[in-house]
Design a protein around this nucleic acid. Structure first.
Lengths: 223, 223
DNA sequence: TCTAAAATTTAGTCTTACCTAAATTTTATT
DNA sequence: AATAAAATTTAGGTAAGACTAAATTTTAGA
């Protein structure tokens, strides 16, 4: 009796998953903003997803949604597709890391499980995509991530860049230029109380850089 | 003012192109059969395509459709995507030639021009896909094809297999097994007047095979 | 605690792309 | 040339997934 999970539904579930990772329950408005559609349209879809068999979300009027086990599996499937695709595009077709997001957003809904498996094998079953984001495993579990925000570091702390947000190409080009990419070590030289700016020494770079919160809130590190 | 060419429209144009290659004008029924939808639905779409700006087809009630220049370009774009994708799946992900059709049918509508260009480059700008079918050029022209049906050959004629129809996986597996693949030389040992069977010597194969018209009408050769 | 602002939901529409059933046109046969 | 069969079109309808405008609920500030 399980209903068809359309492309549109996949997008809802993916974004709800990502919103749930932060503040547990995803609000109608946040979903609407992310999907770039009207909040009213989101309400309609959430009601459908909550009433489908099996239910894909748990939805309480005016209180946002969380994913059910089924919904989460479906979301992780899409996220696995997305991140494997990004890795594949970079490794196999020579895309740079700021060019892959859009392409993967379209392809993720269309590739078969066979395609997914072949990609994973060809890439040597990677655990992270080019931005350092964790790739859900083949059995659809998300590996634990203990990284923290670069913005949370203070003077004299040292850390390793683990992952960066992948949805702003301009930011990605900037990060690449200043050497802030996964697995690179950094040291905080200064923290500015007023604007939250961090002065950072990046491994392999000659001079320090000063990064505002617009940047440091998009970069995750392991201490 | 040009309208959006949806996935569905791309499918119509692709199939109309292929039907036009044979008997010039594509009939409502043939299109419906190929797309596996009701003839009435096809009529509706043909009217839309003929009245769009610019028109994509020339449609005369009860007399079928042909593509306009614009419609043909759009069709060739999709066909180029499809055939490059098939080549890519075989060369890069190890698919066999009977497994690629479905996957390419979904991906062809989704990949970007950038993806197309990167594939073409990575593959060395191939001119034929794994089934030997000609790939439209980057500027969307279809190279001339002078191959003829294997079914049209007679006793003692010799030819080179050029291409085979790609939409029946079982047939493709059979052809692979008997060695009837592009660029292989064959000789007709016998033609049977009654059932159209051909007894064929295939280069590199020990014994001759007898092929019925169900097979010989799907294989194209150069004399 | 009252109220204004923000967030959310309801109600009613629209478009795309399909469907079925009935009507019409074309084609083939006698 | 008449007519039966085949092909096609018309008419009316559905579901998905979006929209806007209006109504309602929640939240935050005085």
């Amino acid at each position: 009796m399980s209903e068809i999970i359309t492309q549109s539904i996949q997008d809802y579930l993916k974004h709800i998953y990502e919103l749930n990772e932060h503040g547990s329950s995803a609000s109608t408005n946040d979903i609407a903003t992310r999907l770039n559609i009207a909040p009213a349209s989101v309400t309609g879809m959430l009601q459908r997803l909550a009433n489908s068999t099996p239910p894909l979300v748990i939805y309480k009027k005016h209180q946002g949604v969380t994913l059910t086990k089924n919904g989460e599996k479906a979301a992780l499937e899409v996220i696995r597709h997305h991140r494997l695709l990004e890795t594949f595009l970079v490794n196999t077709l020579g895309y740079s890391w700021d060019e892959v997001h859009c392409e993967a957003d379209k392809l993720e809904h269309v590739i078969s499980e066979d395609f997914e498996a072949r990609m994973a094998k060809a890439l040597g079953n990677p655990t992270r995509d080019p931005h350092g984001e964790l790739i859900p495993t083949a059995d659809l579990t998300m590996p634990a991530d203990k990284s923290c925000l670069l913005a949370s570091l203070r003077t004299n702390e040292t850390a390793t860049v683990r992952r960066v947000s992948d949805d702003d190409p301009a930011l990605l080009r900037h990060l690449r230029k200043i050497g802030v990419v996964p697995e690179v070590k950094i040291t905080i030289k200064n923290y500015s109380e007023f604007d939250g700016n961090l002065t950072v020494k990046v491994e392999g770079q000659k001079s320090n850089v000063v990064l505002g919160t617009a940047v440091t809130s998009q970069v995750f590190v392991d201490k």
